[in-house]
Amino acid sequence: MGFNLGDGPPDDGRPLRRGWTTGACATAATKAALTALFTGGFPDPVEIVLPKGERPAFALARHRLDGEIARAAIVKDAGDDPDVTHLAEIEAAVRFGHPGAGVTFHAGPGVGTVTLPGLPLPPGEPAINPVPRRLMRAVVEALCAEHGRAPDVAVTISVAGGEELARQTWNPRLGILGGLSILGTTGVVHPFSCSAWIHSIHRGVDVARAAGLAHVVGATGSTSEDAARRLYPDLPEIAYLDMGDFAGGLLKYLRAHPLPRLTIAGGFAKLAKLGAGALDLHSGRSQVDNAFLADLAGEHAPRSAILAANTAKAALDLARAAGIDLAEGVARAALATVREVLRDAPVAVEILVVDRGGAVIGHAG
């Protein structure tokens, strides 16, 4: 949950460079630190094996062997992904644990703690996700077997500045407090794959369901979310899902994991795309269909002017000048799309079309 919700891809035509997850960095740091406990020396660079067989090597940013504790840190390289953890320093502090304890994981400074149910980890656990734990456990078990020692090892992961960085992620909303999550399923960050954001949406639904919420809000941005908050001031923080452009990611997950009530709030242009059937509302992957808007406006609208409009707002203004409530039409069309995607899922849906000033200008459902 380290996806930066405000950045975008480079626009210079060069190939996008992939990077490494916090989980991969934590695994490499763990391997380096535990090796030092056994041998007194830190491998640098340190190589690990990822779930798909890749074998990246990581340079150590710093390391220290201090009596019974070894520490190794790696600076995360997220490639060209818009990730708040890019260039963050991921540290593993490793010591031998009590006999029979096995491999245990602990949150150091900058790593969060789970406080709400519904996530892959129970409340009270450090926010080190299952796949990174599996990678680190495999490293520990292999090294301990090599040196003839039982794998009773305590691993503490820290992220420099992680508590501050976490404020730019979904973690506070998901009830992960005190820092970032250590994430990754393949160990590789694929630039702008959208998967991190959609993963966060899914976890947000899980948390809301586990808390027994009956109503959640998916918003395309902060202005539309603020408009929904004014309408529903009593909804808790975890009810607000930062849907962004990924309407399909939210709706398809709710189809399989329904909640009783869903409000979708968004700007006119975004919801015009949704009304026309687009489920990815990003400007680079879907466009406003002026012909669709002209059809919605009806026979009394200035059709040729709407078809020639250079922005969705211009089309809205043309319709408004002709006395036509195009925002209501967009809300109804978006509602139809949402219901079609949800199919028979027992979810009552409401659509809010919000203008740039935060006023609700269209409503359906």
Rank of each mutant, 00 (worst) to 15 (best):
I48C: 08
V49R: 04
V49P: 00
L50N: 04
L50Q: 03
P51L: 13
G53K: 10
A59C: 07
L60K: 11
A61L: 11
R62V: 01
R64W: 04
E68A: 15
R71I: 02
V75R: 15
D77Y: 01
A78L: 04
A78H: 07
D80Y: 02
P82N: 03
D83Y: 09
D83G: 05
T85I: 03
L87W: 10
G100P: 14
G102E: 03
G102C: 06
T104L: 04
T104H: 03
T104A: 05
T104E: 05
P109A: 15
G112P: 02
T115P: 14
G118Y: 10
L119I: 01
P120K: 09
G124Q: 02
P126E: 00
P126A: 00
P126I: 02
A127S: 06
I128G: 01
V131L: 08
R133C: 06
R134V: 14
M136Q: 10
M136R: 11
A138R: 11
E141T: 14
H147K: 11
G148T: 13
I157H: 04
V159D: 00
G161C: 06
E163M: 07
A166Q: 06
A166L: 01
R167Y: 08
R167L: 13
N171Q: 01
N171G: 04
R173H: 11
I176L: 03
L177N: 06
